[in-house]
Design a protein around this nucleic acid. Structure first.
Lengths: 222, 222
DNA sequence: CCGATATTCAATAACTACATTGAATGTTTG
DNA sequence: CAAACATTCAATGTAGTTATTGAATATCGG
């Protein structure tokens, strides 16, 4: 990753763009971004979440800082990293969408996810609509609060993935829980459902996520 | 770029996402996408536009096909490549936006662009508004037609960059030409202005591009 | 079916990225 | 100011990526 080359200005620009993309091109860095999407975190905690060595995380974070994806601030013993802006998540989402649409591979992996944990069958938009009218479900929006604020399924409760455990007690164990996030394969809702079922809840995913819900003309609350 | 690893399904998913991002992480592949954004092209022509060896282009295109960014179809002697969908351009734009917002480096390069070709100073949205009322400018939208169709500056003529040369004769040489595309640093409008000035036109860029124009509440035509 | 054209393949060498390790730096707490 | 902790740095080996070259394959026109 060299910094500037002495070629044409156009190529120089494209090299900067490429640097951003290249830096996003590593699974663990994407995981780091997912974590940081939920709020600023320090290195130690991130290493713990990903289960990889601290030095490793530190290096990834520094690469990401060079690419302008994250910013760092020292707070006492800790160095707190945060995303430089919402554009970073937007870029990751756009990439995920391309992968979801184009790569058969992704579909296969998702299907494997299903099979391993039987009956994680998602609920369709229409079914959720009628269940909502009956009031027989609890709907969880597991996206970060800022995205929730911009529009969500009516009646949905915003429980970012990181807060799921602490907010379990506020959920009615008798009602089925439906979790959703950003898209049909957004990983956060998979995680949420998996964890909820582990705790004994009856939980399922919404078939797609928020953009699709709105795009289908279903009511949105904000 | 190995295909599937036998790790957790979550990591497997992220590896697919990373593959897409990694493949976007090369300046010449971004240039190829820019070209293909204007329509399907065959290998030879792409190699010519980028000024790099054909074998090189072929390999890049194959990498991009593996990542689901482009699709290929044989037509006689030629193999025609095209983007697999609009999501690819969206992803590139999202990445560019991150780079534009975050990297001082990009700003520097753009400034260099200005200085090299004096008075490429962009025109502000407000100034363009009043010039539009006076009718003293020709406005060019140099984006691909599908993006133009979704909304453009009132009175703007859609001239995709690839067609600029052939449509020069339809322009009034007495009027100043304002070109715009997708964003404040979208490269196509730079190119358009540079080429127009080379042909003797008085040309400038709009300060930002289409999303910003609409976001500022200025009128949009579609 | 032969020659021309378009594209891909295969092999190589130079380069870049990655994980791993242990040492070095910086900061707080006692 | 020393001990403990959090993070970064530096050095290493391994693996992956890229450009380059020339050969191989596929298609068309005669």
């Amino acid at each position: 990753m060299n910094l500037v080359s002495s070629t044409s200005p156009k190529l120089a620009l494209f090299e900067q763009f490429a640097l951003v993309a290249k830096t996003l091109g590593h699974p663990q860095r994407l995981e780091l971004i997912e974590q940081l999407g939920q709020g600023p975190r320090h290195v130690d905690l991130l290493a713990d979440k990903l289960g990889i060595p601290i030095a490793n995380v530190s290096q990834h974070l520094q690469a990401m800082r060079r690419a302008g994806l994250v910013a760092a601030e020292r707070q006492g013993k800790f160095v707190i990293y945060r995303l430089t802006g919402p554009g970073v998540l937007k870029a990751v989402e756009a990439i995920q969408r391309v992968a979801e649409v184009n790569l058969a591979e992704v579909d296969k992996v998702v299907r494997g996810y299903f099979d391993q944990r039987d009956s994680l069958e998602p609920i369709s938009r229409d079914e959720l609509q009628s269940r909502l009218r009956d009031g027989t479900v609890t709907v969880l929006d597991v996206r970060p609060p800022d995205e929730y604020a911009l529009g969500h399924v009516p009646g949905a409760v915003n429980v970012p993935l990181g807060e799921l455990e602490t907010r379990l007690s506020t959920l009615d164990p008798a009602q089925e829980v439906i979790a959703y996030c950003r898209g049909p394969y957004c990983v956060m809702s998979f995680e949420a459902v998996a964890r909820l079922r582990q705790k004994g809840f009856s939980a399922r995913r919404l078939q797609d996520g928020m953009p699709e819900w709105a795009a289908a003309g279903q009511p949105v609350e904000s």
